[in-house]
Amino acid sequence: MIDVQNLRVSFGQGASLVHAVDGVSFSVREGETFGLVGESGCGKSTVLRALCSLNPDWTGTVSIAGAALAPVPDRAFFRRLQMVFQDPYGSLHPRHTVNTTLGEPLAIHNIPDRDRRIIEVLDQVGLGAAFRYRYPHQLSGGQRQRLAIARALILEPRVLLLDEPTSALDVSVQAEILNLLSDLRRARGLTCILVSHDLAVVAHMCDRLAVMMQGRIVEELDVAALSAGRTTTAYGAGLLAASRGYDKRLASSLTADEPGA
């Protein structure tokens, strides 16, 4: 469904050239959820932004649903692929009502029957028609993220890119949103890429995952291997150990200075 070969993204030029994504290859089967994990700056979000053309300066070969991804895709492309962003406080227009937010993609793509679609999608994300004329500031964080998901789904895409969809939310709200995503994924047969720094979220949602470090994939494994602690690289093992919570002995072994300190 998604095939990425040798993806590279760089920023800056000359001495300040940074290879944020430095030759990344992976593929995602139809209906599968693929996780990208790693620490800040490893390039995981940049991969997603390249796939949805928010970052048009990339090289490599990307095909989505059998069609090669153009540097500037046509409008129809975005009916197949949509993205949900990390921060529902920043990703929704503060002066657009729920109705405007959801109506905009329909207007752009000239899709008829807007009323019915808006009410339908609000129902599916558990908000309901009563929320239709509210503004984002009248919604809680969890409700905003439901709206962001509704906005992505209203075009009925086949691929959903999720960039840290729950990291701005409390754990009880996170559980609701992850359950919602699981239900929608099942009902619509979505193919997803989930970027997260939280290995527990990835273990819960994904089938396979790749660990990124400094713009490269250092390890690819399935979730059963992650749960059993069978990582094959030292970096992956370290990330897994640090994600299991505070352990005095482990932490003391990590207190060597950061590189460049």
Partner: peptide
């Protein structure tokens, strides 16, 4: 108890997370 139950876990996969 509800908060603890709503956490996803690395070691074991639940079908659905329990909601508080």
């Amino acid at each position: 108890r509800g908060l603890l139950a709503s956490l996803p876990r690395i070691e074991s996969r639940q079908d659905r997370l329990s909601v508080l």
